[in-house]
């Protein structure tokens, strides 16, 4: 059954940052504040905060190669039951579906880092979808309220 419009209120918040890791703390604060204001549990806030941090880090490093002149857009859409985070950039495409679970013992031997962020994002969020259109990369990450 479809809820009446009055019960399907959606709130949207947008933040844009320059592609530098020094802005990650500000992104975490933005996400935590709004998720808390919308009544998400501490555990859920902690999961969302880490997933958004990891996704932004990947964009800054891999899509934009630390080019501070580029912009990462973070959009939060809250409705009654869920939060949808929409991250967009115009850098090098990055499809999280193409990543396997990292083999940590093997990576330690080879002194290789990386690949862990995507694994965490998939574990922490309820759904993750990547789209690319007209040079724009869009990552949707959904977290259910319960």
């Amino acid at each position: 059954m479809k809820c009446p419009d009055s019960l399907e209120k959606t709130s949207t918040y947008i933040k844009k940052i320059q592609a530098s890791t020094e802005n990650l703390a500000e992104v975490r604060e933005f996400v935590s504040k709004h998720a808390s204001d919308h009544g998400f549990s501490k555990k859920n806030i902690s999961d969302i905060r880490l997933a958004v941090d990891e996704a932004c880090t990947n964009i800054i490093k891999h899509a934009y190669n630390y080019d501070k002149s580029k912009v990462v857009s973070i959009e939060l859409e809250f409705n009654n039951n869920q939060l949808i985070v929409v991250l967009s950039d115009y850098g090098i495409g990055f499809n999280p579906d193409s990543y396997e679970k990292p083999n940590i013992p093997e990576q330690i031997k080879l002194k290789k880092r990386g690949g862990m962020g995507v694994h965490l994002i998939r574990n922490l969020m309820d759904k993750v979808v990547y789209q690319k259109s007209d040079g724009k990369n869009i990552l949707y990450m959904k977290k259910n309220r319960n």
Partner: peptide
């Protein structure tokens, strides 16, 4: 708080 970049240091 820790993100995976922090764990990466221990791996390296």
């Amino acid at each position: 708080y820790i993100a995976s970049a922090g764990l990466g240091v221990f791996m390296a």
